[in-house]
Design a protein around this nucleic acid. Structure first.
Lengths: 199, 199
DNA sequence: AGTATCTTGGAATTCTCATTTCAGGATGGC
DNA sequence: GCCATCCTGAAATGAGAATTCCAAGATACT
């Protein structure tokens, strides 16, 4: 009896993610969303609700599809410090070149804007931070097990440090920070932690 | 012959700084500015121009009055690493407690938002980063001269690292990061750089 | 085929925002 | 005390925002 949806909500949400990711929620109008997705206002509202709901859904999708896979790879990689190094290498490359260059991280961007006044958004921010920190911690524990950490280095504190560093990379990349400089900086941090960190 | 201004533009701008600093430019209306400053729309426009001009003026004032004094103190302090440690101590305290708690840094916030699409704003962002990095570098050169740096530590790369760390602190403080954790994290970074860093 | 139900397109509605305008009031040199 | 000049207040303007509504079209089960 019912009619079926004539579009793919998932593909639509991906388009919306890119809009909010690049421009932020405040400077993105529903009209922008309508234009970019090609579908109708009514369909948008019927499917996702209002603008804030749409933003929340987009932010959730970003976390699941973009952040968490990276975190998982980092946490489950058995190599220790090389995994951390690779994580930052991929991060810097994604932030400074290719399609998403200078877009920063959608979650980091949300930290700085008025988005974070929404409790649900704040919860996502906290979740993101917790997961990043825990993934980093897991990789450092692995590194410690394999004797890669310099003496006196605490994995917990180092996880906090590297997580904070990642936010710095995310933020500065939006202003066009140089990838080579960022890489050198991250390498220095890793060298200070480990007996020998890969590139 | 002319009438004189009936208010203090400097005090007004300070009020405006706090509005934009806390809420960002997109979610702050001219009406908010009118209400907060108590002066009239016409006076606002006559004195500062439009909203974007007002934001630029506020951002400039923030840089001059809030950031640069800190940078100068850091660069001109002759103690080396203790100066760096004190810089971060003051930063964390300002970001996590008192009147401006959870406001982050107005410049860091501008990185993440749509503000940075304005070339003039971008220039301020670059200037801020350059000055922060150079101040950090100066302090580390001082530290090196006094033999405070561990062997193999490059002041330039370390300056980049600590600058990036400051951005991380600024960003995460907006989400309510714990001051004690931030302090521990920063201390660890300083310990990895110096032979002995003060609290 | 019929029909209940959902989707769709686009106009309509209701706000809010930035900016301008203008008449009246205050100022200070003459 | 006069007047050119600037300031002040409040309303007006006009663009653009989010959201809602409704008539028309499409669907799939009976």
């Amino acid at each position: 009896m019912p009619d079926i949806k004539h579009f793919d909500p998932d593909a639509t949400l991906e388009t919306v993610v890119r809009l909010f990711w690049r421009q932020g929620v405040a400077s993105t109008g529903i009209q922008d969303v309508v234009t970019a997705t090609g579908l109708n206002r009514s369909s948008l509202y019927a499917t996702f609700g209002g603008k804030q709901d749409l933003y929340r859904a987009a932010l959730g999708r970003y976390l699941e599809q973009r952040s968490q896979p990276m975190f998982r790879r980092l946490a489950e990689d058995g190599r220790g410090l090389p995994a951390v190094s690779e994580f930052f290498g991929g991060l810097i490359e994604a932030r400074c070149s290719g399609e998403y260059a200078r877009w920063g991280c959608m979650v980091s961007n949300a930290h700085a804007g008025a988005e974070n006044s929404d409790p649900e958004v704040r919860a996502v921010l906290d979740q993101h931070h917790h997961e990043l920190r825990e993934a980093m911690y897991a990789a450092l524990i692995t590194a410690e097990t394999q004797g890669q950490l310099s003496s006196g280095v605490d994995p917990g504190t180092s996880a906090d440090l590297l997580a904070l560093l990642a936010y710095g990379v995310n933020l500065r990349s939006r202003a066009g920070a140089d990838a080579a400089t960022l890489s050198r900086t991250v390498s220095a941090a890793l060298n200070s932690i480990g007996v020998r960190a890969a590139a």
